[in-house]
Amino acid sequence: MDISTHKTHTGAPAPTPRPAASQRKHAARGATRLGDRVFLGLTRGSGILLLAIMVAIAGFLAYRASLAISKDHGNFLTTFEWNTGQQPPVFGIAVLAFGTVVSSIVAMVIAVPVAVAIALFLTHYAPRRLSGPISYVIDLLAAVPSIVYGLWGALILVPHMNGLFGWLNDYFGWTGVLSWEGGPPRSMLTVGILLAVMILPIITNVSREVFRQVPRMHEEAALALGATRWEVIRMSVLPFGRSGVISASMLGLGRALGETMAVATVLSPNFLIKASLLDPGGGTFAQNIASKFSEASEFGRDALIASGLVLFVITLLVNGAARMIIARRKEYSGANA
């Protein structure tokens, strides 16, 4: 299928990495050479196909998005509305961008400290017998489909938030950020808490791997100087693992930014930016696409694709940055080992 089309134009000169060894067997090479060439073509073709898919995603999204944005009678970046059905259409991503960033920040603020603590727990605190099963439990958390989190969030978490919201409003309502008018607690804070639960496993797993790589010598040196366990962690584990934790958090952030179903089920959306995290309202890119999609006309779908393109670019930047940090530290730890 797709592979065979690539095979034809990539099968050409293959820099086989062992020329010297095979030079003498010139006669025997004729038959094997073809197989090697086909196989290299196939494998390299799939690699190129992956790159082509990435380029195609960007290209086709940009093309459909340009169709929609060119007819937009508002400013695509700053308009506070999403009316693709009216004439002339007016829509913009200001509210979605705000909601996506706010919900992700809330999720990060909750998830990162807890995840780092759990990673430390697994590597430095848990009894060895417990560490394995607990890692497995964390993996299970990661394996639960997001729609099940969404259902759980909407039907179980939301009713349980009333108490917390009332309490926050009583004591911190004066800040404005945590005031509550008493609407259903389907707000950005609830979404953030749910997202935090969902991104916890990935941050924990990556941080755990980084903490495992801390050179034993560093820790033992600290212990020999009489440091307590916490001081060992502060002096040798955390400095060594800082960049790893940062990139782990960014991977989690990437996931929180793009999460769709859990936000779509929990949030009660509207196109307003509110200072309060507790009052229902706002929206995120992914949630807006999922909930507006079924009623959207073809033009409406193009507009949703335009907002998806923005999400794509944001997640690309976040993930790319995270991967670069990881790649850099790999070299570093490789030199150490």
Partner: peptide
């Protein structure tokens, strides 16, 4: 690596 982080909804939109 970057592709691992593509939101599922973006793949759908593509």
């Amino acid at each position: 690596d970057v592709m691992t982080g593509i939101p599922s909804i973006v793949a759908g939109l593509f």
